[in-house]
């Protein structure tokens, strides 16, 4: 093969050296990412935080327009109607869900006559800015971030069901890893049978159920809710219902409307009190003055819960 001889003969070697340096620098970046991923991911979050919101003015109209073109079948009014029907359907679903939940709650209340809902579960709402931009990643970017008090690991829902988990927080944006992402794993409970399992995302629209004790007790249509195991996710959030794929594997049809994620709610969850040892007394919380002394001892155990 004929190689190019540059007219200026110093240009070739110098250029080659510069390219080599560039390639080495890039390889170094990759290595640094592999070794110290959180730091580079923080840089990435900061970069996206800087770039994406500045394109907001263009993204919102284009997204809206594309969504409208999608919904624009034959008549202009159809879009409005369609939108309205969708909203109503979603509302109806949530009412149905509320009814089912109330029914179960009622049954429980009758049984134990005393219930206390978690008062700490409040929400922050955010708008979806962008998605992952790659067919291999399932995530969206929200317009709320560290400024709004968002913390890594919090659960995110649309009006009805769980959508994903916060992973990567910038100053004004945060990334939500969707349940369909290949790296998403959340602990769930299958409702009538009460079995615990893991919901494993695999880049398909219906994540698979894994680590299930007996699949015979589960049938399509069972409700799937988050179990709160591991303390990452709050318990009792609706995830979806069981469905059986063509490969006979149990999967979950998600309740959240993944077709159009527009507004998401981030649940402010606080780690629940962990009971790790079986035989130890659980004392009432100490008054503030007495708290200072045992703090030094518990400090070593704390980071796990943080």
């Amino acid at each position: 093969m004929a190689r190019q001889n540059d007219s200026a003969d110093y240009k070739g070697p110098v250029r080659r050296v510069l390219i080599a340096i560039l390639a080495l620098a890039l390889a170094g970046t990759f290595l640094i990412w592999r070794i110290d991923s959180p730091r580079v991911e923080r840089f990435r979050a900061a970069f996206i935080d800087r770039v994406v919101p500045s394109f907001d003015w263009a993204m919102v109209p284009v997204t809206r327009l594309a969504a409208m073109v999608e919904g624009f079948q034959s008549y202009a009014s159809l879009y409005e109607q369609n939108q309205e029907l969708r909203r109503e359907l979603q509302q109806m679903k949530s009412w149905k869900e509320a009814a089912v939940q109330l029914e179960q709650q009622n049954a429980k209340l009758l049984a134990q006559n005393q219930v206390r809902l978690d008062p700490k579960l409040t929400t922050v709402s955010g708008v979806v800015l962008a998605d992952a931009g790659s067919p291999f990643r399932q995530s969206v970017l929200l317009n709320v971030g560290a400024r709004d008090g968002i913390v890594d690991g919090w659960a995110t829902m649309d009006g009805l069901g769980v959508v994903g988990r916060i992973s990567g927080v910038g100053q004004t944006t945060s990334r939500v890893i969707l349940l369909t992402d290949a790296s998403s794993r959340i602990p769930v409970t299958l409702q009538p049978s009460g079995q615990k399992a893991m919901l494993v995302g695999d880049n398909s629209a219906t994540p698979a159920i894994d680590f299930l004790e007996s699949a015979d007790d589960v049938r399509p249509g069972d409700r799937v809710i988050s179990s709160g195991d591991g303390g990452v996710f709050p318990a009792g959030l609706l995830v979806g219902e069981v469905a059986q794929g063509t490969d006979l594997r149990l999967r979950v049809r998600l309740s959240a409307d993944y077709q159009r994620l527009e507004f998401l709610r981030v649940l402010r969850s606080h780690p629940a009190e962990q009971i790790t040892e079986p035989g130890v007394l659980i004392p009432p919380p100490l008054p503030p003055l007495l708290m200072q002394e045992p703090e030094a001892e518990t400090a070593a155990e704390e980071p796990e819960n943080g």
Partner: peptide, 18 residues
């Protein structure tokens, strides 16, 4: 093209990537 891909048009996983 990158901008178009980042638009949150559909967040469902796709069968055939573009």
């Amino acid at each position: 093209f990158l901008f178009l891909r980042l638009l949150p048009l559909s967040t469902l996983p796709v069968g055939v990537p573009g």
